[in-house]
């Protein structure tokens, strides 16, 4: 890539973290790893389809269990999906951090703990027996947490699965040396920009007002309520939900909390 171009079109200061790790001019070496999760976010990269060849023209994939046999540990950018849910995961995620110049958490599990954190609200015996049956004692497990609870994460791409267009946007920002930021507004903004009717007007309680945007309001656009898979936007929005949903929509607070826990159990504890 021509550096002249970079200076002429990039806006804002490049982030130091990736400036140091991604050498301008060479194709960045990219790895995709998985911890505890369904690996759907890894697959989302392959689902880029129309843009996949362009992506492969700009980056070099060197370690990706879902896609290639190569297992290189010389990595510029590492994408990790899945939550940290076992002692093995803890070791793995530390290894990823050491190997990758830039570490990106992809998907609700890696960014928020995701649905894995549902087990944090149940007795350990019961979920271990439910998952592993009579062999429960063979498997070590621990409270599920996002990877940021163990290692420094440079970027997060939340969502279940992650939004592949957002992945593409991050890759382009890293290539050009522009800062990347997640939207700091609610799903409602994108829902309104798409001209959707509001689900609340149909008597459907949607978590769009408290959820971070970036998904282009895909669920409400197809008539399904938002389930906050991209995480709770702010303490302010969470407080408003507490005040509104019970009082104005007659939904008991326990139900609101259990809905938020579907993806945001860990966040619920950490959000101020």
């Amino acid at each position: 890539m021509n550096t002249d171009f970079e200076t002429s079109c990039s806006i804002g200061l490049p982030d130091e973290a990736h400036r140091s790790s991604v050498s301008i001019g060479a194709k960045p070496r990219v790895a995709v790893f998985s911890l505890t999760g369904c690996e759907g976010c890894s697959l989302a990269i392959l689902e880029l389809e129309d843009q996949l060849l362009d992506v492969l023209g700009a980056i070099e994939i060197v370690n990706f269990r879902e896609a290639i046999s190569e297992r290189s540990w010389d990595i510029d950018i590492g994408f990790v999906d899945g939550a940290v849910s076992t002692p093995d995961d803890v070791e793995e995620v530390k290894r990823f951090r050491e190997a990758c110049g830039t570490l990106v958490a992809i998907g609700a599990c890696a960014c928020l703990g995701g649905i894995n954190t549902l087990k944090n609200h149940q007795p350990e015996d019961s979920y271990r027996r439910y998952v592993y049956g009579d062999r429960a004692k063979w498997f070590d497990t621990q409270e599920a947490k996002p990877i940021s609870a163990f290692v420094k994460v440079d970027y997060e791409l939340p969502g279940c699965p992650m939004v592949k267009e957002e992945f593409l946007r991050l890759v382009k920002c890293l290539l050009v040396g522009r800062p990347f930021r997640l939207p700091e507004y609610a799903v409602c903004v994108e829902c309104k920009k798409r001209g959707n009717p509001c689900l609340y007007e149909k008597g459907i309680v949607c978590l769009g007002p408290i959820t971070r945007a970036g998904c282009d309001a895909i669920c409400p656009s197809f008539g399904s309520r938002c389930e906050a898979c991209r995480g709770i936007l702010s303490a302010e929005a969470l407080r408003a939900a507490g005040l509104n949903l019970q009082e104005r929509y007659d939904i008991p607070l326990e139900k609101v909390l259990s809905e938020l826990r579907f993806y945001g159990a860990y966040q619920e504890e950490t959000i101020s």
Binding site: Y185, A186, K192, P209, E236
Partner: peptide, 13 residues
């Protein structure tokens, strides 16, 4: 504003 989500729906419509 205690009840406000800051979702911006009022602006956008």
């Amino acid at each position: 504003s205690n009840r406000c989500y800051s979702c911006g729906s009022c602006n956008l419509v």
